[in-house]
Design a protein around this nucleic acid. Sequence first.
DNA 1: TCCATGCTTGACAACGTTGTCAGGGCGAGT
DNA 2: ACTCGCCCTGACAACGTTGTCAAGCATGGA
Lengths: 332, 332
Amino acid sequence: MRDVAALAGVSVKTVSRVVNQEPSVSPDVAQRVRTAVATLGYRHHLGASTLRRTEQRTGTVAALLQDLSNAYSASVLRAIEVAAHERDIAVVASSLDEDPARERQIVEGLVRRRVDGLVLMPATASQAYLQPDLDAGLVTVCVDRHPQGISVDSVAVDGARGGALATTHLLDHGHRRVAFLGDDLRIETAAARYAGYERALAAREVALEPGLVVTGLRSAADAARAVHGLLDSTDPPTAIFAARNAVAEGAVRTLRERGVAHATALVGFDDFALADVLDPPLTVVRQDVDAIGAEVVSRLFARLDGDTSPPRAVDIDLELVRRGSGEIRPPH
Amino acid sequence: MRDVAALAGVSVKTVSRVVNQEPSVSPDVAQRVRTAVATLGYRHHLGASTLRRTEQRTGTVAALLQDLSNAYSASVLRAIEVAAHERDIAVVASSLDEDPARERQIVEGLVRRRVDGLVLMPATASQAYLQPDLDAGLVTVCVDRHPQGISVDSVAVDGARGGALATTHLLDHGHRRVAFLGDDLRIETAAARYAGYERALAAREVALEPGLVVTGLRSAADAARAVHGLLDSTDPPTAIFAARNAVAEGAVRTLRERGVAHATALVGFDDFALADVLDPPLTVVRQDVDAIGAEVVSRLFARLDGDTSPPRAVDIDLELVRRGSGEIRPPH
DNA sequence: TCCATGCTTGACAACGTTGTCAGGGCGAGT
DNA sequence: ACTCGCCCTGACAACGTTGTCAAGCATGGA
């Protein structure tokens, strides 16, 4: 900047004014500065700029999601990134992999970097550790799960309603032996979907059978093993509720391998590409990921723009998409 | 930091030493400082730190990929992110959407932020605009496409070989009317796959028929329209090479809708989840995305660690995965 | 006892930028 | 001609941190 100033024959402050497009610079001086900037290849240093500025904004937000290679996390990231780009804001992305220690470690790194905002899909049981940073002005929006121990905006779906929707649908098609396959119940979303499953069984007065509940499933391979186990049991289920997309993937594959894809009902949670062209097409409870992303972005930027209204917990609608696999009836 | 120093009864420099874990601080002073840091909730300011440091590293790298919601881009991002986390490096992620102007704009923003490294899936025809920043020490690795106008590391697959692999496979199964469905040929990867298609036809002395080539397809919906068009033509293809995963998705859906999924051979490019349980299972040319990600990460961090060997262009192997759809034979 | 050595600590300036404030020039109004 | 006010510009300090250098102190050897 000093060099630019020297070449243009002005002070560094004037260069600063031109770079920041402040109005009070005469056109010919501004032009001289711009020429000097171009010939020297000068690059404005955003870090130094934010350090000095009164309003300490880095123009960076972070997205802490569970797994960036999962379509759901990726969609949320995409929504944030598109909106951020319009405002010249950079997006730092991280996967948490359901690891609370990792969440805290990554958040710490981001706070050190003074990101302006955080979109968080929490892996921790409580986010109270964030309180000092929230007080210091860190804008935070939770997604997919509700905040615990702090009071911030959140955008999620009603997982219990989704679980009930899927389970009731299977019960309505005559099933009495409906299996639940999901992730670790310590994870809020898994617990909610399971609660919906239980609630639906209770509403129809169908006894909950512990042998039909398998949790802690994270990958498609985990799910495949679980389905094999259920099918090999003495009294296998006639229907399966796969409460995660990776679990649904494993279930689809296993039912097909075992040749019972048309004999066992299956409802997945979370839609994915080509679910409609599987054989049979997969019935799912769909979360509107675009709506979730849009709402997250809207809350995040509203807060960054100074919205100080009380935190909101927004629930995005769920929808049962009937495609075939969930409408299979039980034997005889 | 000043407050911490005052509370601990030491100078700011000593606080700095403790924060940076420099060895020459007596244990009791260090403890006093750490206590003060904790009680005041002090957060080290990485921006100010890098501003002052001699080695101007921000501990941030950027991934500029085509579409973060696409499984391929997402996998590359994931690989970078995992490796970066181990080194306390943050990853900024952006989608370019094949838009050259967007690429330049985003790169400019990142340079202003002084990122240490760039992983770039170029959308521009030439990346010569990066030269001044490369000279200034910006580490860059291209992925999926080779750099043009600059000399940097790159990691890609041999798209022409992939196109030839797919096309030859279809020809070997007796097809003579093989359609090519792909993206705009100005995109390097699309052009390479098409070149492979042409080369394979020529090698078998099958005439190239322009009516069987549809390009500029970006989405599954685009591909669906194209397949409908081909099937409605007077002399439809007996086999289709879908040279992108979104295109394969549209082709699968359309062939199924039209009831010819078992009568028309189909080979896709790029594997995806559940391709093995489609009906028929989808034959694809698979890129080893994990290997690509690993290689990108390895090149990037080697350069950041000071490797100054000549730039390398690494080609990752392609593999034809035979699953059924590509082995369908032409009628009679 | 004295000095050299090593260890710990602090004062100061500097990184690249912008907020603050003051000064110079010029046009308009009296 | 003089003053007032506006417009443009620059000098200086400061943002939060660390590199440099020098000084204080204890230790150990002569």
